[in-house]
Amino acid sequence: MTAVDDAPIAVDEIATMTVTLRIRRMNPEGAGEHAAGEDYWEEFQVEAHATDRLLDALHKIKWEQDGTLAFRRSCAHGVCGSDAMRINARNRLACKTLLKDLNPAKPILVEPIAGLPVEKDLIVDMEPFFASYREIMPFLMPSGPTPERERLQSPEERERFEDTTKCIMCAACTTACPVFWSDGQYFGPQAIVGAHRFIFDSRDSGQWDRLEILNDKAGVWKCRTTFNCTEACPRGIEVTKAISEVKRVLNTGEI
């Protein structure tokens, strides 16, 4: 196939437009008339292409209008997990969200992800999130003697946990979960995804240690299957399904 004439339109062919971003801000040291720690909304207008990422628009604000605007980002194409935010009331990665998919006719609402302490503007304290991940012993615990070559694993055995290996720990799922918001104890969906990745790995022997942790009061039984996590995952992981699979193992005792 040599589709040349119908090749897609280059980015610079698309006209620019004015987009309004309403950003939820907080400066721990105060900003102008805003006291230290005060939450407030601020509007910015930027010229952008419809195919620009929301992250590009945030950069335009930071680089051309207000350098104090604080947010995390790194890879800018959805693999490092730095820039999860609440965009029009939905958790997404700013670098994987194109303006054309956001109805740019209306102001775009941008807020920090919920349920973690806000440090400044769109930056939250990620430590409680990573602490939950560390709790579930997220590392292979094999048994038996270490083989000289690789441990064998069939493609089918690998397929069982393939989906949950894609997690980039952006916290979009956990901070979309209403139980996580209201219950300070709950590990949250990401930690369960992290555990699932090992529980269903045929090379692992630590499943029951992990399952015991997840059976605890902070564990899987807190999940109310609202599917917010699955909708929020920028990697397309079926988070709720993974949690259900862990619940099933706890119910049946069979992996």
Binding site: F139, P142, T146, P155, R158, F161, T165
Partner: peptide, 9 residues
């Protein structure tokens, strides 16, 4: 692999 990396098989 021994650390757990899920290589394709």
């Amino acid at each position: 692999e021994k650390m757990g990396l899920p290589f394709n098989r």
